[in-house]
Amino acid sequence: MNVTHRLELRDICIQLGDHVLVALDTEIGPGEVLTVMGPSGSGKSTLLAYLAGFLAPEFRAKGQVLLDGHDVSSLPAERRGLGLLFQDPLLFPHLSVSGNLRFGMPQASTDKAARVEKALANIGLTGFGDRDPATLSGGQKARVALMRLLLSAPCAVLLDEPFSKLDTHLRHEMRRLVFDRLRQAGLPSLLVTHDAEDAEDAGGRVIDLSH
């Protein structure tokens, strides 16, 4: 995980009809977290959908998404190398905890079992591999979701208000964990949120869409 990655957003412009929702030109270096802030309806979720490859057909988008210099904006979602962290942990209910962690691991990777064990130990959940995700607490689920993302070896990460549904006391702890791990992995990350504290804890640049 020591390879460094860089995400460049070149002249991104997303329109709904004639109305420009988002216009953005920036780049995110390895281990950097860029926060995009804005109230609901400001187009920040649309921006994420566009980057990840799920833009609804009623929107029009221009621009280039360069990941390590390659334009990924015409690739299908599964080949972009962009990981996504949602508001909810969304652990697959039909898989065990380790099944969830394995789900995203590249098929060629060897010693999967050992890496899953290591990942669980890494988030303080040693021995939880066989558990039903439904029996985990909210914080534990969020940690498994983060590990699943990292094990899928993305080249950059998109965060869609991943802390908004956590209890207040967990939120701060979870933010630190997430940002630390992303930085360690050297991943460029884009966080969208409406919570100013998220931006503060992320510690990177902030783009405010409401202006």
């Binding site: 990981g83 996504l84 909810d88 969304l90 995203g104």
Partner: peptide, 14 residues
């Protein structure tokens, strides 16, 4: 739809 989006971003094919 978030389940399939999640699975796609984790690298699964359609």
């Amino acid at each position: 739809p978030r389940w399939s989006r999640l699975a796609l971003t984790l690298g699964a094919s359609c």
